[in-house]
Amino acid sequence: MARYIGSRLVQAIPVLFLVSVAVFSIIHLTPGDPAYVLLGPNALPDQVKEIRAELGLDRPLPVQYAVWVSRVVRGDLGRSYLNGFPVIGLLDRAWPVTLQVTIGALLVALAVAVPLALLTVRFRRTWVDHAAGAFVAVAYGMPTFWVAILLVFVLSIRLRWLPPSGYVSLGQDPGQALRLLLMPSIALSLGVASVLARFLRATLLEELAREYVRTARAKGLAERAVLYRHATRNALVPVVTVLGMQFGAFMGGAVLTEAIFGLPGVGRLLWNSVLSRDYAVVQAAVLVSAVVFVLINLLTDLCYGLLDPRIRYG
């Protein structure tokens, strides 16, 4: 197992190198200049020149890249061009917010998708199956931002049940933190929940057609036990793969949900930093997101072994 994890981490190095080159090139080749963002439209040319020199932007791009990478490998992600805060501190504050929303969305997606898939399989070709199918189709078709706006309109403005925006950490006030996370988690999860429900339904139907299921039924096991104890566990392996891949979708969707719900997460930090060309923050945020994505994929692969004892890591 340790050897497998080690080799996967080594394989991640070229991936992260390519990500670093890509993000550095894209953000630096995008027109715009942080010096002008700092100084505004009435800046004088000499002032712009001074700020660019101070930020190291007057050096050739390969030199800037080499300086950045040499710092990153030593654990120094640099400082924000705009406010001088260490980037690592900004990410340290933002990541827990995004992770809370992402995990919240993951839990909501599972809480919706698994029962829905089981229901549709259990009551296949009945009105329950059709109704669930219709719900899944509608949920899949609704854009995240639209669901978010709808939730705010109904739950905050009309019913006044939930605050429309804001963030407090779980440690600060767990009750209020969960209330504030509820709407973003639902908004972010619906699309993924519908994909998961469809996928789980299809794999469950495949599993139910296999010989081990016929044997279980022949031995006189109750249909409920066949479905929940045997078929569902085997059907979960491909579902975990989909879930791991959807994690990236959650992180992408966080940019929108964080803007709508006023959450100070990575998505919002990245959005603001791109607009103000805060290169140091953009580069670090994307690189750290890539690391997280690589780790999630590794975790996903390790989960296979827990779900299917036949899978061994060498």
Binding site: R160, P164, E258, G262
Partner: peptide, 18 residues
């Protein structure tokens, strides 16, 4: 002082007293 990326979210926060 609380920044909002989305002006409509700021309007909602005002309307609801947040």
């Amino acid at each position: 002082l609380k920044p909002f990326n989305n002006p409509d979210a700021m309007v909602t926060a005002l309307q609801t007293g947040t």
